[in-house]
Nucleic acid binder design. Structure first.
Lengths: 247, 247
DNA sequence: CGGGCCCACTTGTAGTTACAGGTTCGAGTG
DNA sequence: CACTCGAACCTGTAACTACAAGTGGGCCCG
């Protein structure tokens, strides 16, 4: 299997290791090498591409981190099986859609809806400058009349002009984002913790301040890595549980 | 701020970069450097610890990946803001593998390990008849010495003969399942809730019975839909949060 | 006093060498 | 024939050098 590789450019526009990483990734994703098939050794790649082992190792390190390959000391580097790694395939949506399908009556009440300036936490999560305009939403979601979820959402105003005036009652925010702003979520990070609510949140959720709740922080982004939404949700888990599927 | 660092051991038991990474991480997590405060430059660290810049860069790279620091070209490395947000990557595994990679000392203590007959919950989750033999495990996982996770696992004895006698201390259960029984997890469902521990569990986790914990129920299955594992895990979330990446 | 440039310092990239430690496989030995 | 042991090969760790490229402060000049 003697592949012909495009030569690497040494004009300094792009690091050698990145070019090499791309070349190897393209080859792997093309499927030329099956799962668990070995890549050429570092020394061989070094010769093949005319670069130092430093560059080769840097490129392989990146591929390992992307979980496209794995390395075994003393043996070599191998194509990782299951190109779609097992991951949490959670409801990308704010869960409204899923619940609706289950035949329950889901209502969403907007408690607050306003323009504001990003505080430190929002700026960090959304990767925007401190003080940049954001649309803030505080929404209470009920299922069959019972308080379920209290969500504080922040979105960069630049991405969603006019959202501070949109009617969101009983709508899925993700639906609005998709239809009105063409926003297609690509991925998200979420952190889940067990917390107590403060007095105000407890009142809205109709629980005592000593009821343990799920606190869920989330940041979601587009294909191009633009962060478009950050939220913190308080989830009553005394009646139901938060579901995560992994496929 | 002239810190006194413990000297690095050169006996080869642990790579220099990992020792250095640990030393820097301990310092950062102790809080002596505030958020966005600069670390010593690579050259300074090199001198301070008497190692090459190679070792320093390797250690810093690891800390960047753990999101404890960030680097800016031409300026330096800085303590990342956001609290001690220890990373807990959720993939398929029981989290042991992921944590181990982050260079922390993960120990697993088997509190109980026995054969038994499936109760109603286990039978329903595993889709086996009531009373069929199951292997039950109760394991306590510590990270850097601190109790982290208490897991009650049930597996159909038919699928894992002899597991009730296997030595599981400090091993990843998923590793054992894979190597010894050829079990390859294909998917899983998980439900997360916020709960209080009972007295016994609280004692094991070294928290009070009024500390809110994450309760995680999980059932995992093979490609052919055979359920091979059901567990309920209690997760301390006062020190770290449960992370879910959605891609 | 203001502006621009240079220099010192920083991280990033790339090359080199050396050796440690794990894996594989075949030659030689009992 | 089985078994061992070493050679060859692999990745991991560590050292060194060199230069590119970004940052920031201070000095000099107009």
């Amino acid at each position: 299997m003697t592949m012909t590789y495009p030569p690497l450019s040494r004009d300094g526009a792009e690091p050698l290791w990145m070019q090499l990483m791309r070349a190897l990734r393209a080859e792997i994703e093309s499927g030329v090498r099956g799962p668990d098939q070995p890549l050429p050794s570092e020394a061989e790649l070094s010769d093949l591409f005319g670069v130092s082992r430093t560059v080769v190792r840097e490129a392989l390190r990146e591929l390992v981190q992307q979980r496209l390959i794995y390395k075994v000391k003393g043996k070599g580097a191998f194509v990782a099986p299951r190109k779609t790694e097992l991951r949490f395939v959670g409801s990308m949506s704010g869960s409204a859609d899923d619940l609706r399908e289950s035949g329950r009556r889901v209502t969403t009440q907007t408690v607050r809806q306003a323009l504001g300036e990003a505080d430190e936490r929002e700026a960090a999560l959304l990767r925007i400058p401190l003080g940049e305009q954001v649309v803030r939403l505080r929404r209470l979601r009920r299922v069959d009349g019972q308080p379920w979820l209290l969500v504080d959402t922040a979105l960069p105003a630049r991405l969603v002009p006019g959202l501070e005036r949109a009617i969101l009652e009983n709508q899925s925010l993700y639906d609005v984002l998709r239809r009105r702003y063409g926003i297609e979520p690509a991925a998200a990070d979420r952190w889940i913790e067990a917390v107590f609510p403060n007095r105000e949140d407890a009142a809205l959720l109709e629980v005592s301040t000593s009821t343990p709740l799920l606190g869920i922080e989330s940041v979601a982004w587009l294909e191009d890595n633009t962060r478009f939404e950050a939220y913190y949700a308080l989830h009553r888990s005394d009646q139901t549980r938060f579901y995560v599927g992994i496929r």
